[in-house]
Nucleic acid binder design. Sequence first.
DNA 1: GTCTATAGATAGATAGAC
DNA 2: GTCTATCTATCTATAGAC
Lengths: 203, 203
Amino acid sequence: MDNNNKYEETDTEQKILKAAAIVFERDGFAGARMQAIADECGMNKALLHYYFRSKELLFRRIFFAKFQTFFKDMVSLADTEIDFFLRIDMFIDNYMRMLLANPDLPVMLFTTIHQNPEFLQQLDGSFGLKMREIFQKEMDEGRIIKINPLHIITSIVGLSVMPFLARPMASHVFKIPAPEYQKLLEERGAFVKHAMRAMLKPI
Amino acid sequence: MDNNNKYEETDTEQKILKAAAIVFERDGFAGARMQAIADECGMNKALLHYYFRSKELLFRRIFFAKFQTFFKDMVSLADTEIDFFLRIDMFIDNYMRMLLANPDLPVMLFTTIHQNPEFLQQLDGSFGLKMREIFQKEMDEGRIIKINPLHIITSIVGLSVMPFLARPMASHVFKIPAPEYQKLLEERGAFVKHAMRAMLKPI
DNA sequence: GTCTATAGATAGATAGAC
DNA sequence: GTCTATCTATCTATAGAC
């Protein structure tokens, strides 16, 4: 089929996808306008439909890609050759790097899944079971306190993500200038590592 | 003015407000439909405009009330007569109670402020400065580790809120049935108290 | 592939009867 | 205060020229 294989998407298509990610992350699905996406990449509104048929299909394309981004670092937790807390450290490092590169991703993700829980059906959730086993093993062998694994994962994610989620609110309430807040985000990883050790190490 | 003072709002008005809170928390501002709110309380769509003029004014009414709900427990942190960690405990207890009663509040709040940061201008942020002072005093007197206060408050909120924010995602990935997830939420407060002590107590 | 023009549907808001 | 009917604006999506 000529040179139109999936490894050679057109430049226009890529521009639209990039613009769509920006607008959807900023305004959400319902609040986003196809015209805003067209403006963002300097393209014509009709082109968006030419390439992606509908607003919903374009949104799904962005959403599922971002969902992968949000979860893919978690596989590193499964490498049981390495010390548990070192694995946690590596995960947090990667996760914070991802969040710094995608600061608006968490809001978009949580909002979308809250408003369209049916999207979850199409997503792979197989690593949940594996992660449970991993945490269970560490508990059985006495390296971390005994606690439902959900508390562990929501703690890592909660501690890491909250400063990004709460950025506008927190910087307003605490009157923190943008550069200082950025510095706080960059040093957050170190604090989260400390916190996870402190709360999980047996006494 | 007859009996129309602010302490005697009409029954209809209250019904609309309650329905609006449900729909706005579920669908967000952009996604919500005036018709959906009317259906939710069995009222006529035109009545919503009669009582609140516009969708935006109705939304602001809900939003600012919910914002107060989200932050009002934090004042208990300021009562310096009580031991710091006891205050933290009391706050977490109240906060978790509030979250269990308003499980959809966090998504709505973070989404709205992300999409309409200008709403923050109308909100009182005066307790931020006071909270900073309180944390600073505890650090100076060696009762907690030295750390930027923002890390503390985002940790409490992050640990408390994340299981609510991530509920659909987490229960899907970890395959947790609704009743078990509910139990996890109810025991979360105890874990957050433990975690805050562990991460803040000086070694 | 890319554009202009427009169809088609929907939602917020209002007019006016009761 | 509450209803029905309708106006008006807006947005997604498509038709059709180039």
